[in-house]
């Protein structure tokens, strides 16, 4: 994580396109060395390709193509390095670092461990929110209500609030606040 932070600083201090392209080549080599499935890497990178193209086009119109190349190369380096860290670092390690960084909040009576727990739980429950939406969407489609915003959102909100209540009980049962 510290390396990623340092690389970010370095990349933004560089303005020589040749050096930035060299940095990008090194980052891609590091990603290749991680031996992650190419299809998985492409699925993660694909949304950024569109963004990079848009940035380059915008710079070509508003500033210059060369400036655009410098900007998108910096961006590409950060995307590749960020991907490398995300794919090879356990969430528990990221949470542990976050808790250390947030340690000073204990001085104002807040709990850094709870901040870490909030992040973990957010990641854990995102797929379940998606599942709940799909289930409700299918049920409302069966009733001919698939285009009705309230018919989708109200049951979803109720379901999520009920789940939050149940999760709260589970956290208490697991001794989180003890």
């Amino acid at each position: 994580m510290a390396g990623l932070f340092g690389a970010g600083i370095a990349v933004f201090l560089l303005s020589d396109l040749g050096m930035l392209l060299g940095f990008l080549a090194l980052s891609l080599a590091a990603l290749a060395a991680a031996r992650l499935p190419p299809s998985y890497i492409w699925a993660q990178i694909r949304p950024f390709v569109v963004m990079i193209s848009l940035f380059l086009a915008a710079h070509a119109v508003l500033t210059s193509f060369e400036t655009g190349l410098v900007v998108v190369t910096r961006f590409a380096v950060m995307v590749v390095l960020g991907l490398l860290v995300a794919m090879t670092t356990r969430l528990s390690a990221v949470i542990a670092i976050l808790e250390k960084v947030l340690a000073p909040i204990a001085l104002i009576g807040l709990d850094p461990a709870k901040a870490g727990l909030v992040l973990s739980m957010t990641i854990r429950f995102i797929p379940l929110v998606g599942e709940a939406y799909r289930d409700i969407s299918a049920a409302q489609k069966a009733r001919g209500l698939e285009r009705n915003f309230l018919a989708l959102m109200v049951p979803l909100l109720i379901k999520l609030l009920q789940r939050a209540d149940a999760i709260s009980d589970a956290l208490i049962a697991r001794g989180v606040d003890d």
């Binding site: 356990r90 969430l91 528990s92 727990l117 973990s120 739980m121 990641i123 854990r124 379940l128 789940r163 149940a166 999760i167 009980d169 589970a170 956290l171 049962a173 697991r174």
Partner: peptide, 14 residues
């Protein structure tokens, strides 16, 4: 305590 719906009890991603 084991709840009826494990999705309410499992709180971490992995």
């Amino acid at each position: 305590f084991l709840f009826q719906d494990p999705d309410n009890q499992i709180v971490m991603p992995l």
